[in-house]
């Protein structure tokens, strides 16, 4: 069965609702006083974890497309990226509003002493322009530079991992899992890139090059 535009709207709405579930779960736990002994930490870590997970999911879509040979995963790339940004924003908001209680002196004391917070802030500053330029009109306005700009997501993935590794006291299991996932996702892209480089003659055939890629299908 071929899915039409309306089908995709419904599917997207479902995925969107799913993406909001962790947010509502933590919200309800907060309202019901179920966040444990250190509620701020639970919120802070919870949002941070989901930011990282959505970053991974967003970065997994192109490899899935490559491996499955289907273009549908790419339809969700913007939404996943924006969810990563949404949870990263909540993560930062909890830190500034609840953990620091909006105190400048606390911020000025903590940030220079904590390289991991610095790495986290850098990650957020890298994600911010991507979120702001995520609309279709921005995509058109930026033209070919849009792709270049959005490659910042790879840098953000690395700084997010650094952020995680630096804050862990001793047990690196969790950040290592994320690092392994991201390395695999990058490896697929690198493999694909070199595969293209190896066969320049074949792909240059004019017939195949004619098909114009739409903005939605630009692969990273």
């Amino acid at each position: 069965m071929r899915l039409n535009k309306q089908h995709w709207s419904v599917i997207k709405l479902l995925v969107f609702t799913l993406g909001l579930l962790p947010f509502f779960e933590l919200l309800f736990d907060g309202i019901n006083d179920q966040l444990g002994a250190n509620p701020i930490e639970t919120l802070h870590f919870g949002f941070g974890d989901w930011a990282l997970r959505f970053l991974c999911i967003g970065l997994a879509l192109t490899p899935i497309k490559i491996i499955a040979g289907q273009s549908w995963p790419v339809r969700f790339r913007r939404m996943m990226g924006l969810f990563a940004f949404f949870y990263a924003s909540l993560h930062l908001l909890v830190y500034v509003v609840l953990d620091l209680s909006l105190s400048w002196t606390a911020l000025i004391d903590e940030v220079p002493k904590s390289p991991y917070i610095l790495a986290g802030l850098v990650t957020y500053l890298l994600l911010l322009p991507l979120a702001l330029t995520s609309t279709q009109s921005m995509q058109k306005r930026f033209g070919r530079y849009w792709l270049v700009l959005h490659r910042l997501v790879y840098v953000a993935a690395v700084t997010a991992l650094v952020h995680y590794f630096w804050l862990v006291k001793k047990d690196y299991t969790q950040p290592l899992i994320y690092a392994a996932v991201m390395t695999m996702l990058l490896a697929v892209r690198i493999y694909k890139f070199y595969q293209k480089q190896m066969r320049p003659v074949k792909t240059r055939s004019p017939g195949l090059r004619q098909k114009k890629t739409t903005n939605n299908e630009i692969s990273r």
């Binding site: 930490e41 953990d99 004391d109 904590s114 991991y116 804050l167």
Partner: peptide, 8 residues
């Protein structure tokens, strides 16, 4: 890697 000046 982190400040010890405050505690939760």
């Amino acid at each position: 890697r982190w400040s010890q000046s405050r505690e939760r």
